[in-house]
Amino acid sequence: MTDLSIDLGFIKLKNPIIASSGTFGYGLEFAPFIDLNKLGGIVVKGLYFSPRPGNSPPRLVEASSGLINAVGLQGVGVKKFSEEILPQLRKYSTAIIVNVCGEKDEEYASVVDFLDKEEGISAYELNISCPNVEKNGVCPALDPETTFSVVSLVKKSSSRPVIVKLSPNVTDIAEIALSAQEAGADALSLVNTFLAIAVDVETRKPVLPKVFGGLSGPAIKPLVLRMVYQVVSRVKIPVIGIGGILSAKDALEYLIIGARAVEVGTANLIDPEATVKIIDGLTEYCQKNGIDKIESIIGTLKKPQGLD
């Protein structure tokens, strides 16, 4: 029997495969396709305190091996989530992680405050890539100080572990990672989508109404692997890799580099069974290579001699 379980310190996962926020709805939508009990965890769609209307369409553009989205975090808000969705979701035996959004630091704290009273949540994942209304729409993730301030505020109100989801749209992601760790983050997940643009050459207009969208999918995987590599050597807290994972091989690359778990995102849209297939693929890989515990391959990248 291969042991796929992963210990993140604050929580033990059945396996390293977590469904990523924004691509898995509120989880229940996937029950007709897969057994949700098989997943390491589910990160539900980002929640602001109140329901959010989201952006005007078009919201999606396909890119080469990727997807640019500008959904705008349309969502139901904490009240409806707690009353209608969470009671059904907590019946499943998998880690339920809530992706927490905010227009300002206090909103993140109030979402966490509200959800702390509800049972059946394993951890929060802070989406610090939300535009901040008090700071000209700049998101906290872009600066070590704003990252520190929101993470430490949320850590004060939260009775649960806090995973901080970093943005790739920075010069030095390790610097932001260290700042989140210093503010008390229990883990880091990286990364959110890459800022991207698509142009309609006939109209010479941007395809997306607000010009920018976020790029996800296989196109970003090599970039994120590099970022995970740069971060794992600098921080003590566990790192969760997110970006372009379609197969078990993709997930293994992240684990070997040093991520302790991964989130599967865009793949869910294309193949609703993707997460389970990846889990099966991990078992197969371990069996083929005589690996009893998948934890044993984490951070085992063989670096060329002479490199640290």
Partner: peptide, 26 residues
């Protein structure tokens, strides 16, 4: 018609302005 990310309601990529039961939204 719309570009769709998933087709089964999880990506929220294919919206239209709709009025229903007195409410309007995406």
């Amino acid at each position: 018609e719309s570009v769709m990310g998933c087709g089964f309601g999880v990506c929220w990529g294919c919206v239209k302005r709709i009025k229903k039961n007195g409410e309007e939204g995406w």
